[in-house]
């Protein structure tokens, strides 16, 4: 069974995303800030990380992604974005932004599931 970690400071987004993925049969763990996010990833070694760009600071999602890569955590990362483009952030996969995919908020269940399935296998439905 694939385990997905969602790290986002908006409890509503956390709940909505979790529900979508749980309905599809994934196991989900969540964290609402970068510190807890780092902890759950280290502890539970998920198969995929969904990470919000802006939490306490306008770019702490990026910093957390960089920290994972520096520590050789190669788990694929999908980044939730909302307005980072206007802040002039780069949206190409690069060393600066070591993530594998982007999802623009708001989230549609189909789009989220489609992006997630690029990285983890569809669990066998019960």
């Amino acid at each position: 069974m694939s385990l997905i970690a969602i790290i986002d400071d908006d409890p509503d987004i956390l709940d909505a995303s979790s529900l979508i993925l749980k309905t599809k049969g994934f196991e989900v763990i969540t964290a609402s800030n970068p510190v807890d996010g780092y902890k759950i990833v280290k502890e539970h070694k998920p198969d995929l990380i969904i990470l919000d760009v802006i939490m306490n600071e306008p770019d702490d999602g990026f910093f957390l992604a960089q920290k994972f890569r520096r520590e050789k955590i190669t788990t694929p990362i999908i980044m939730y974005t909302s307005i980072s483009k206007t802040l002039g952030m780069q949206f190409d996969k690069s060393d600066m932004v070591p993530v594998d995919e982007f999802v623009e908020k708001p989230i549609s269940p189909e789009a989220l599931v489609a992006k997630v399935l690029k990285f983890v296998k569809q669990p066998v439905e019960n």
Binding site: D10, D12, I13, A16, S17, L19, I20, T23, I54, P58, S82, I83, T86, K105, P106, I107, S108, P109, E110
Partner: peptide, 24 residues
């Protein structure tokens, strides 16, 4: 923009789920 978008995104996220038949 970020502050305005966050509640809109959350609300739309909920509505998307409610309207999605597969989510039951």
């Amino acid at each position: 923009a970020h502050e305005l978008k966050a509640p809109v995104a959350a609300t739309l996220g909920f509505l998307n789920i409610i309207l999605n038949k597969e989510m039951s």
